[in-house]
């Protein structure tokens, strides 16, 4: 088992951006088209994080032209160049699948405002 852990650890990214469920994030995703390579940005709300060591993934949801679009990104994939958290969200559950059934204002996540320690 230790050998497998060692192999997986080699590929786990160090200092990845800290992400939480409910955050609005920009994912800079590398796309290879034949010989050329470009970076595409996918911005949306993180509605789920699935742990699993090297297989850790997160789900980003956005509304594109009125249609809900969800993408699953492997966190440690070399094609996920970087993640930028635009806005922290205040949420009370680990999976925000209920957002799929909501429209308009109800489909929003309130911003997390941290109180200063007195």
């Amino acid at each position: 088992m230790d050998t497998i852990k060692a192999i997986e650890e080699q590929q786990i990214k160090e200092n990845v951006t800290e992400i939480h469920v409910g955050d609005t994030a920009k994912v800079y995703f590398k796309i290879v088209e034949g010989a050329t390579e470009r970076v595409q940005v996918f911005e949306g709300i993180i509605i789920a994080i699935n742990n699993g060591g090297i297989r850790k993934t997160f789900v980003v949801r956005k509304i594109s032209n009125g249609v809900g679009v969800e993408r699953i990104f492997p966190l440690h994939s070399p094609r996920v160049e970087r993640i930028e958290v635009v806005r922290r969200g205040r949420v009370r559950r680990a999976k925000l699948y209920y957002l799929r059934d909501k429209v308009g204002k109800a489909a929003k996540v309130p911003e997390l405002i941290k109180k200063k320690q007195a």
Binding site: I4, V32, P74
Partner: peptide, 21 residues
């Protein structure tokens, strides 16, 4: 045979692999 895991290839694809010591 040690077991199975997954590794990323150069294109960022996850490949299922068996580890043999």
């Amino acid at each position: 045979k040690i077991g199975m895991t997954q590794v990323f290839d150069a294109n960022g694809k996850l490949i299922p692999v068996t580890v043999i010591k």
